Simulated scan of single mutants.
Amino acid sequence: MTVQLGREQRLAGGHWLLGSAPSLQEARADWEESGSAWLRPGALFGAVIIRADVVHAALGADSPIECAPLVDVDGPVFYSEDGFGREGSYTALVPASVALVWGVNGSIPHHRRALLQVPAPNAVRPERAGSPWWVVPLDGPGSLCDPDLLAALVKQGTGTPGVAEGGPGA
Rank of each mutant, 00 (worst) to 15 (best):
Q4I: 02
Q4R: 07
L5N: 07
G6S: 08
R7T: 05
R7V: 03
E8V: 02
E8I: 03
Q9Y: 02
R10K: 06
L11V: 06
A12P: 00
G14F: 12
G19Y: 02
S20Q: 05
A21Q: 01
P22M: 02
Q25T: 07
E26T: 10
A29T: 10
E32T: 05
S34Q: 15
G35W: 00
S36Q: 13
A37I: 07
W38H: 08
R40I: 03
P41W: 01
A43P: 00
A43Q: 09
A43M: 01
L44C: 01
L44V: 01
G46Q: 03
V48N: 00
V48L: 00
I50T: 11
R51H: 14
R51I: 00
A52N: 08
D53Q: 13
D53K: 11
V55M: 06
A61Y: 11
A61C: 14
A61R: 15
S63R: 07
I65Q: 14
E66F: 01
C67H: 10
A68Y: 00
V71C: 10
D72W: 04
V73Y: 12
D74A: 10
G75A: 06
Y79V: 13
Y79L: 10
S80Q: 14
S80Y: 08
D82Y: 15
D82M: 12
R86Q: 15
L93R: 09
V94H: 01
A96V: 01
S97G: 06
V98T: 12
V101L: 09
S107Q: 09
R113V: 04
L115F: 07
L116N: 04
L116D: 08
V118Y: 00
V118R: 00
V118F: 00
A120N: 11
A120F: 05
P121R: 01
N122C: 01
N122W: 13
R125C: 05
E127C: 09
A129H: 10
G130S: 09
S131L: 07
W133A: 00
W134R: 11
W134I: 07
V135G: 08
V135C: 14
D139M: 06
G140Y: 04
G142N: 02
L144N: 04
L149F: 09
L150P: 13
L150F: 07
A151D: 14
A151M: 11
A152W: 08
L153K: 13
G157N: 14
T158N: 14
T158E: 15
G162A: 15
E165T: 12
G166L: 06
G166E: 11
G166W: 04
P168G: 15
A170F: 08
A170E: 15
A170S: 15
A170D: 15
